[in-house]
Amino acid sequence: MFARALARFRGPNPLNLLEQQGRRTIATATTVNADEIAHFSKLSEHWWDEQGEFKMLHRMNPVRVQFIRDRVVRTRQDEGMPDATDLRGLNALDIGCGGGLLSESLARLGANTLAIDASEANIRIATAHSSQDPLFNASSSVAHKTLAYRHATSHDLVEEGKQFDLVCSLEVIEHVDNPAGFLESCAALVKPGGHLVLSTIARTPLAYFMTIFMAERVLGIVTPGTHSYSKYVNASELLEFFRTRIPWLPKGPADPPSHLAELRGMIYYPLSGNWGLLPRGAPLALDCNYIFWLRKPV
């Protein structure tokens, strides 16, 4: 019985499912889920309420930014920029930017940032918020960082032939239809030698307990319906995807070398009220929230 319950929790791999249903090509695939857009549009005015609906995301943001900054800075230092400390001069794309929590941070760290979202309400909120900040408001005397928002999908940009040094799509895959097609569009937007950063939630009993049972139902810190368990993607599935379907990583069961990719679990510490990265290889590290960085081969 226990085994059956576990099997139920394991569920089918969302990245394979669609493949089996018959391949759609990137160009025609639409990955945007209308219900998800409606859901987030409804919540959009809460994006910047640090004590409200997106409190957890606000607290998670510094850890995600640190992970991204450190990976990118390390590669820059290894590749001829020994003094690099931030994202200065890079072109960055934030796919599914929501209210712009990550987008603003990337721009503050010096990246020329374009942020897109399929929800027009999100884009409005994000634009309104960033224009309050003199750093981004062209009419202020101290403005010197570039941040632009567009109501667009990743497919729109692929069609336009755009490519970026850094493409981020955090906490998005679990909200799209056809995640495989979505990942292909993300990958297509990365310049050769560029960085792709993804984060999502694993499809495990632990993740179900934390993100749906506790967060949505018991504690009520997230609006019910925000997460759909069956859309969660396991780290191993993501790795496999980038070994076979998009062959950026060497094949085989071994962990990818650290200069090409890194997978890290993220955990919330309720006592100190912040998120942290779990050590590499910690037990259950990749069983809930995790973040994934990898490079596109040149």
Binding site: E50, Q51, R59, P62, V65, Q66, E104, S105, R108, G273
Partner: peptide, 12 residues
């Protein structure tokens, strides 16, 4: 970390 240093989360 590119956070807004005036925000509540940054100073908590």
């Amino acid at each position: 970390l590119g956070q807004d240093v005036g925000s509540f989360t940054a100073l908590e």
